[in-house]
């Protein structure tokens, strides 16, 4: 299972829909996508992880890297995730305090705080 990526614009947000497995092999593709978006001026990102089957610390590192990049432009990076096994990884690494995590894309797109 490879990584799938697609992006769409909703208002002033860019939604990145990620599917498949984010690991040491596929994470560079996600990193490239996030870097490219920031370079193109998209600073408010929503990463939709509903179709992610596997996430490891390499993937977390890429998301943290993305967060640093958007913050350098006073942007935001929000996550959409309902899967317990994925949320667990954010919890044990303390990253639930770092990322705003939403249950739906709509909620993430409309969030302002």
């Amino acid at each position: 299972m490879d990584l799938s990526l697609s992006t769409r614009t909703v208002g002033d947000r860019t939604v990145v829909e990620v599917g498949g497995e984010i690991d040491v092999y596929t994470a560079p593709k996600l990193r490239e996508q996030l870097v490219e978006l920031v370079n193109d001026g998209s600073y408010h990102l929503v990463v939709d992880m509903e179709h992610v089957d596997f996430l490891d610390s390499t993937g977390l590192g890429v998301l943290v890297g993305g967060l640093k990049r958007v913050r350098a432009h006073e942007g935001s990076l929000r996550l959409v995730c309902n899967q317990e096994r994925i949320l667990k990884i954010f919890r044990i690494t303390g990253l639930t305090k770092v990322f705003p995590i939403h249950t739906t894309v709509d909620e993430a797109v409309n969030a302002t705080d």
Partner: peptide, 23 residues
């Protein structure tokens, strides 16, 4: 800081062990 990816790579190394010990 930021661009090289080294910082991220280091974060990942440390986080990998954190994930294992948390799991």
């Amino acid at each position: 800081s930021g661009e090289s990816g080294t910082e991220e790579a280091e974060d990942e190394g440390t986080m990998g062990l954190a994930v294992i010990s948390g799991l």
